[in-house]
Structure formats: C-alpha cells, structure tokens
Nucleic acid binder design. Structure first.
Lengths: 91, 91
DNA sequence: CTGTATCCTAGATGATACTG
DNA sequence: CAGTATCATCTAGGATACAG
C-alpha cells in the first residue's frame, strides 16, 4: 500500500496504461491535481521504479512519463479498480 | 478511490474476506492501527455500505463486522493487491 | 469488550510566484 | 514547458483517558 496507496498515484498510473505521455498532457488528465502534487507524485513513482521519466534535451523542455515493467504489472488491478468505481458510482 | 483509498480501508476489507470477525479480533489483525483509526475506518466503511456491523445485545458487548455484498465484490482487487504486494516486497 | 472524546503533531495538499 | 520554492491550511493519525 505504501507504493500505490495515495490519492493520486493510482490515477497517474492508470492514465499511463495506454502508453507514455508528455508531462503537461498527463497532468491535464489528472483532474484536480495541483502542480506541486503532480511533481511530487511522479517523483515518488519514479523512485519506486513504477514509472520511467525521460528528459528530451530540447527547447522548450520535453519530459515524458511511461510505465516501467513493474508499473505495467499493476494493469489488472488498475483496470479492475476503474471498472469497480464505474459500477459503484451511485454513492 | 474515495471509497477505499485510505491507508487502512483496504486492510480492513482484506481481513474480512474469509468471514466476519469480532471487533477486537479484527482490530488485532490490523497491525499498527490505533483504536481511533480503527473505529473511524469501520464507521466509514459501514456508511459506504462496504461492510455490515452487527451488535449483539449481550454482556460484555459483542460487535461483529462482515463484508456486504458490495464489499465482497472487491475481493478480486484485494486479492490481487495482496499478491502484488508480496511479489514486490523488495521495493 | 467496544467505543467515544480530547489534545497534539507531522505530513499532505493547495495557491502563488518564480527559475531554467 | 517543466519544475521548484515558499507560505498557509487542513486533515490524518497517534496517545491517552474516559464511558456504557
């Protein structure tokens, strides 16, 4: 639970399931996340080797995030969580 | 994520997968949880209709918690999380 | 046994401004 | 564009004592 048990981590991972995304694009997909929490979250996920951060030395800066093999192994769980959430949205 | 996205909720649910448990027994299974957080967690889970709380009018008091049908529907996810955690314990 | 009520602290989070 | 720094706020969580 320490690796993925936060408010934002599962969401970040979920949005990377279909492929790597540029930083700004990924952040926009996570509705409601602040810039600070976004950076903090991806940093921790990178540290835990669940995602891979790639920096392209261009101007303007370009950074891409994608799931690591380890992160990808969470796919069944993330998909299940998503489905369960949709099925139980009535709350 | 609001329904199960806390530090303790998944653990409480997980320990009820194999059947209902008496309050004290359940609490002892959740290592490290304080009395306050335990009560607060089960209260929220009950409110979200993920678990069912049964009070037996005896002395001394006896309270039992068990998964609701809705809570039981989380079993695949909880089992997967458990397995994933075991497989990735090396950090 | 089960649960509540306080008090208290650390960490989580947001808003804003700023840097390379 | 991507990320950092700072300030302020809120809440999670623990410890303890108490109640029914």
């Amino acid at each position: 639970m320490n690796l993925i048990g936060t408010k934002w981590k599962p969401l970040v991972l979920f949005h990377l399931l279909d492929g790597g995304l540029r930083s700004g694009v990924l952040q926009k997909k996570i509705l409601g996340i602040s810039n600070k929490m976004f950076t903090q979250t991806v940093r921790e996920l990178e540290k835990d080797r669940l995602i891979i951060r790639t920096v392209f030395p261009v101007v303007p800066p370009k950074v891409e995030y994608k799931l690591s093999q380890r992160g990808a192994s969470l796919e069944p769980i993330l998909r299940s969580l998503d489905k369960w959430g949709l099925d139980n949205y009535d709350n």
